[in-house]
Write a protein that binds this DNA or RNA. Structure first.
Length: 492
RNA sequence: GUCCCCAUCGUCUAGAGGCCUAGGACACUGCCUUUUCAAGGCAGUAACCAGAGUUCGAAUCUCUGUGGGGACGCCA
């Protein structure tokens, strides 16, 4: 995504902070996008942090995927990435300092004990929480060496913060837990490190999914405990599946690379995503520059949005038609080479290939479909086709008339193509001329144009449905290929 | 269960008290165009969760109810 010149506002710093425990989630992309757009619009910076504190589930391949997908989408970090796994020492120092200030404490309870009280409270109809057994403990428990570190969260009062999208949100402190800062295995938790790192990175605006609203009071407590200035919070509505529940693998495709391999263009995916929870009047279609110029938090929706694949496909089609054919050619070559043969790929690189793309991109929506359409058109030989559905199978007389007409057509075109490997377009047979010629032949042989073109289209395009008209094909494809395919048609 | 958030066509949304007999888009239906159609053009169906209040006036403000979602982890 390119960025138009904006006023520089160095104070605006936002981040996208995924955890590398899965492929880049499409909902994560929307979060990243809103952060990115906000930063670009304000002239601030977009940063990236890898939240890999969950050592069991974090994997390098997922980090690689997140980075390559973001690059594909044109949203790259403007400062070096921060990896939480590299900052363990700092987290421990801060935790210990909180203990010495009386803002955190060591908890010697085992996970099983904590789990037991949680279940008990649930049964009693209370909010499941830690029983605060170790909160006022002064010494270590005899016989136990392993401990977690917990926040000493206030027992009463209110914690509030202002959300830029929803206004003031208030939580009674008594409903909040003494959450864990450092696990007994020494690994710090999300709620703890997110605050430390946002302070370290000088994040001014935390823009994230609204599933984090409930985490915010815990984090507000930590900002105060660490004596740091709170960032401004903006909680985005969730992206929902068709079942109106949080989008997950169960109710829709969530990995970004899946959309790429389906043949979606990055700008189309972003355009679709930006309209999920944000609007600018009646405008549906945005270029990447327009998104940056128009984006604002004021028009972000508060309620969840269902991920609508049909609309995504429509937006994709709109962007496909506007895309630069040269760029589409490159995408076909890098992402969809497998849809073509060595020969068709080679011939696609010619002027003919580019001309075909300009036609096919008007009809087809996905780049994958573009590649599939292009293959038989660029192949040199005769394609195997299923002629059983042709109308002429039911009418022997018609079939002969059509074949006669095709013979006449070959007889007329063959001498015209002085160099058979050239296209007839090179000899003046453009769309209009082909049109006139075919209509004249139909009249002469007493057949309908539709009946005439049916079998020809099947054999020339090599497929049942073609995104490009026969008249155009006859002038674009090289004559030797057309002739061979028409001959095959005569033999069928 | 407890806490938090939310509530306009099937879906994405416009809407900041009168401009709303609620607008746009996707999808759907019909028609047109046409050399196939998967493109294009035109038209149509379709919504303010309910009830009270505030007001001359409410989709817009308040309250209650209902419904939905999210969070309640030594996941992030």
């Amino acid at each position: 995504m390119s960025s138009s010149p904006q006023v520089s506002n160095a104070a605006v710093r936002v981040r996208f902070a995924p955890s590398p425990t899965g492929w880049l989630h499409i909902g994560g992309v929307r979060t990243a996008l809103f952060n990115y757009l906000f930063a670009k619009k304000q002239g601030g910076k977009f940063l990236l942090r890898i939240e890999d504190t969950d050592t069991d589930r974090s994997e390098q391949k997922y980090t690689d995927d997140i980075l390559s997908s973001l690059k594909w989408l044109g949203m790259e970090a403007e400062e070096p990435l921060l990896y939480q796994s590299h900052r363990n020492k700092i987290y421990h120092e801060i935790a210990n300092s909180l203990i010495s200030q009386g803002l955190a404490y060591r908890c010697y309870c085992t996970e099983a004990e904590v789990e037991a009280t949680r279940e008990q409270m649930m049964k009693e109809g209370k909010k499941p929480m830690y029983a605060r057994t170790c909160r006022e403990r002064v010494d270590a428990v005899t016989g136990r060496t392993s401990f977690a570190i917990r926040a000493k969260f206030p027992l009463s009062g209110l914690t509030r913060f202002t959300d830029m999208i929803r206004g003031e949100i208030t939580f009674p402190n008594e409903d909040l837990d003494d959450f864990v800062l450092i696990r007994s295995n020494g690994v710090p938790t999300y709620n703890f490190v997110v605050v430390i790192d946002d302070i370290e990175m000088k994040i001014s605006h935390v823009i994230r999914g609204d599933d984090h609203i409930n985490n915010t009071p815990k984090q507000v407590f930590l900002y105060e405990a660490l004596n740091a200035k709170q960032p401004l919070f903006a909680h985005l509505p969730m992206i929902l599946g068709q079942d109106k529940k949080k989008l997950s693998k169960r109710n829709g495709e969530t990995s970004t690379n899946a959309y790429r391999s389906e043949g979606y263009l990055p700008e189309a995916l972003l355009n679709f995503l930006v309209r999920l929870g944000w609007s600018h009047g009646d405008q549906e279609l945005f270029t990447s520059d327009e998104m940056i110029a128009l984006f604002d938090l004021e028009h972000v929706q508060v309620s969840g949005a269902v991920f609508n694949t049909e609309k995504l496909l429509w937006i994709q089609g709109e962007h496909m038609r506007k895309a630069d054919p040269k760029r589409l050619l490159e995408i076909v070559k890098t992402d969809f080479a497998g849809k073509l043969s060595t020969t068709s790929l080679e011939r696609l690189n010619s002027a003919m290939g580019l001309e075909l793309i300009t036609f096919v991109q008007q009809k087809v929506k996905l780049v994958k479909e573009l590649a599939e359409q292009l293959h038989p058109l660029c192949e040199k030989g005769v394609m195997t086709v299923d002629a059983s559905t042709l109308k002429w199978n039911k009418d022997e007389v018609l079939k002969n008339k059509i074949k006669d007409a095709i013979r006449s057509l070959i007889a007329e075109l063959k001498p015209a193509a002085k160099e058979p490997s050239q296209s007839l377009g090179a000899y003046g047979y453009d769309h209009v001329k082909v049109d006139t010629l075919l209509r004249a032949l139909c009249e002469k042989h007493g057949i309908k144009l539709g009946d005439f073109t049916g079998p020809m289209r099947l054999f020339v395009t090599g497929q049942a449905t073609s995104a490009i008209g026969l008249f155009d094909l006859l002038s674009i494809l090289s004559w030797d290929v057309i002739e061979a395919r028409l001959e095959a048609c005569l033999k069928s």
